[in-house]
Computed example of a mutant assay.
Amino acid sequence: MENQFFKNIEKKTGVNMNEIFQLASSLQNANFQDEKTVRSVIQKVARIANRSISKDLENKIVQTIIQDGKQLDFNTIAKMINQKK
Rank of each mutant, 00 (worst) to 15 (best):
V15F: 02
I61L: 05
N18H: 08
S25R: 07
M1T: 10
N29Q: 07
V38S: 03
A46E: 04
Q4A: 14
I42F: 09
D34Y: 01
I53W: 04
F32D: 08
Q28Y: 04
V38D: 01
I9W: 13
I20V: 12
K12H: 11
I65L: 12
E2C: 09
K55A: 15
S25K: 08
V41P: 00
T37M: 10
I66Y: 08
F5R: 08
A46L: 05
N31G: 03
K12N: 12
I48K: 05
R39D: 12
Q4R: 15
V15S: 02
V62F: 09
V15N: 01
K60G: 11
I65M: 06
M17Q: 06
A46T: 07
N18T: 02
S54W: 05
V41R: 01
S40G: 15
R47H: 04
N31Y: 00
N16G: 09
S26M: 06
Q22W: 01
Q63R: 13
E35M: 12
R39A: 14
S52K: 14
Q43H: 12
I53H: 05
I9Q: 07
F5Q: 07
E10A: 12
Q22N: 10
F6W: 13
Q22V: 05
F21S: 09
L27F: 03
D56N: 11
K60N: 11
E58Y: 07
E35H: 10
K12L: 13
N31H: 00
N16Q: 15
I9L: 14
N16A: 13
M17A: 11
N8C: 13
Q4E: 14
K60T: 08
G14V: 04
N50R: 06
S54F: 06
E10W: 08
L57Y: 10
N18F: 00
K55Y: 10
T13F: 03
V38Q: 01
T37V: 12
Q33N: 10
D34M: 02
M17N: 07
I66D: 08
V15I: 11
S52W: 02
I20G: 00
K36G: 08
N29D: 10
I9E: 05
S40T: 15
V62T: 15
F6P: 01
M1I: 11
N16W: 06
A46V: 03
N29A: 05
F5D: 06
I42V: 15
A24N: 15
Q63P: 02
E35G: 06
N16I: 10
N50A: 02
Q33W: 02
D34S: 09
V45A: 01
K60P: 07
F32A: 04
S40N: 15
F6D: 03
Q63T: 13
I9T: 10
R39C: 13
N16S: 14
E10Y: 11
A24R: 05
L57C: 09
V15T: 02
E35T: 15
N59G: 14
S52V: 06
L27T: 03
E35P: 05
F6Y: 12
M17V: 10
E19Q: 13
I61V: 09
I53Q: 10
V62A: 12
V41H: 00
R47F: 00
S26A: 08
Q28G: 06
S40E: 15
F32L: 08
